[in-house]
Design a protein around this nucleic acid. Structure first.
Lengths: 327, 327
DNA sequence: CTGAAAGCGCTTACAG
DNA sequence: CTGAAAGCGCTTACAG
């Protein structure tokens, strides 16, 4: 392995001069050329460990994800990774497997690895999170959830839900089931529901009932038949695409035609929702873009530049086949 | 930050003694206790950079993936990560975005990061791969593809395809389209086709035609109508679940009932194939287990233990709803 | 079993 | 603009 000493020796300069060259210090044109040539010839690249040990900083950004096997996670990671790669930063992924305790551990563990900052694909911010972030003293960027004490990139859940609500109302639906999730998840459990609620409140005479399930497809498959029996709506507005996928499956299993007998909508814009039969009308979020924004903001944070506390990522209502036009 | 010197001072011993304690050298019971207490009290954890700089080794395993947004990748990563975490090894993920050039770069870039070994979720092994691995001189573990020069964990593509072939034949299908992929991908493009071919060769009087598409769902959606027109089979055996998903979509778009008018099978066992209507009969691979095995073997390789060159991961034929029983 | 010393490959004041 | 020196936090022979 060729080291900075080798380069210095071959180029006939001091190590410190080579280091200055590497880190953009002031250098005469001639020595610059000499060093450049030697580095090119030897294929030298600095030892990251020595750099980090001495300089006490790294260009590693830690990303904590609640789970690895989700469309949203994958896309967001791609967005983060692509941007970081351009800046020669490295991304380290830490998976919590939907375990909040493990998520907290991951914060401390990334701090031990001396990452420059932490991007958290957030679900729920507990007091343990607050404490962990306070003690590690690292720049933090939330994705998907907002919080007073942190910077974040969020999907515009409220507006998306409002617009989706207006869309189904405009299509004549008046007996509506909303199938949501726990309010512990503010973005998915509260914001989407509230945006939707606003839309229905603007249209008198609509009958709406709110139900709750988990994020798991199988739970949605179980829950939907109960809703049908209890309430028999013309449409089920699902808080995520996975829940909508479960609803679609349940409809098929009950020999209901979608959308003729039952309409269904989702949130997310997962690739698969276009492939199902029928394709699912949904509020698409641009996860990859959100990841990009998060990476961009994180780097600014690390460099102590100013950024807005909240950055909104785009959304778009995808009008597809799963909503019946009642008028 | 508390360092090894601090621990040594507080415990009243030399740094080297603390280091020996940390690395399992011989230590008297009394000094061991002293050091233990001080470490517990201070919450000391060794600086990884200093360790790696000095010891010239790390416990980081690099994993190169062809893409982040695939069921197979996610599951395999989870399997690798879970096992590595138990051993206090760290996983670094390097995404190639289905770009072979970037995959090669990732090999060199992981080597620069001084990873202890590289796990490659392989698609195609080119001469550039061979060269890269030769120059970085690191233990290598392939997942999903086999190669003379490397250790690997592979899915039993051949046997799975053979068994799936026998299954559809047993159900009476005799006019069969096989929709495969490029032979550059040995596991998916060749092994699956050959296993299937063996099954049909054992049953005289079956008419089989072989077609080719890409890994992309949309290409499959385009391709399937052509196959239907040209050949009109009773079943399309697809080389991956994504291709099968496209075939299912194409069937729906052409108002064909599955499986009554057309049967479809896949490979992979992606979660979504159970949710579609009808659910898809497929050869399930245990990606997570494969990842586990790969991690286990990788660690052995790093520790210079003996391992088999090829480790087979399990498979299972999932008999579901997409294959018509013709007899 | 234990300690003093050297050194891994860098960066960073400091002096010139 | 350039160089000599100190030191980051560890590990590893070596000597006792």
């Amino acid at each position: 392995m060729v080291t900075i000493s080798d380069i210095a020796k071959i180029a006939g300069v001091a190590k410190s001069t080579v280091s200055r060259y590497l880190n953009g210090g002031s250098i005469s044109e001639t020595t610059k050329k000499k060093i450049e040539n030697v580095i090119a010839a030897t294929g030298y690249s600095p030892n990251k460990f020595a750099q980090s040990l001495k300089a006490k900083r790294t260009n590693i950004i830690g990303t904590i994800v609640p789970r690895l096997d989700s469309f949203a996670t994958s896309q967001t990671l791609i967005g983060i990774d692509d941007h970081l790669r351009e800046l020669d930063c490295q991304m380290v992924i830490s998976n919590s497997s939907q375990d909040l305790k493990r998520e907290i551990e991951n914060i401390y563990s990334l701090a031990k690895q001396k990452v420059a900052g932490i991007i958290l694909l957030a679900t729920e911010i507990t007091t343990e999170h607050l404490e962990a972030f306070r003690t590690v003293q690292l720049p933090v960027m939330l994705v998907g959830q907002q919080h007073d004490q942190f910077h974040s990139v969020i999907h515009n859940d409220y507006d998306a839900a409002y617009e989706l609500g207006k869309y189904i109302l405009a299509n004549g639906h008046r007996k509506i089931a909303y199938l949501g999730v726990t309010e512990k998840d503010v973005a998915v459990g509260i914001k989407r529901k509230e945006g939707f609620r606003k839309a229905v409140e603007e249209v008198p005479g609509s009958k709406v009932r709110y139900f709750e399930t988990s994020f798991k497809i199988e739970h949605s498959i179980q829950k939907v038949p109960e809703i049908l029996e209890e309430f028999n709506p013309t449409i089920i507005v699902c808080a995520t695409d996975n829940i909508a996928l479960g609803a679609l499956k349940a409809a098929h299993m009950n020999r209901l035609r979608v959308p003729d007998d039952l309409s269904i909508t989702g949130f997310g814009g997962y690739e698969i929702t276009e492939i199902t039969h029928p394709s699912i009308t949904t509020a698409k979020f641009y996860y990859r873009e959100a990841g990009n924004l998060a990476a961009r903001n994180m780097v600014k944070l690390v460099n102590e530049e100013e950024i807005n506390q909240i950055t909104f990522s785009r959304y778009k209502i995808l009008e597809r086949e799963s909503v019946d036009k009642l008028k």
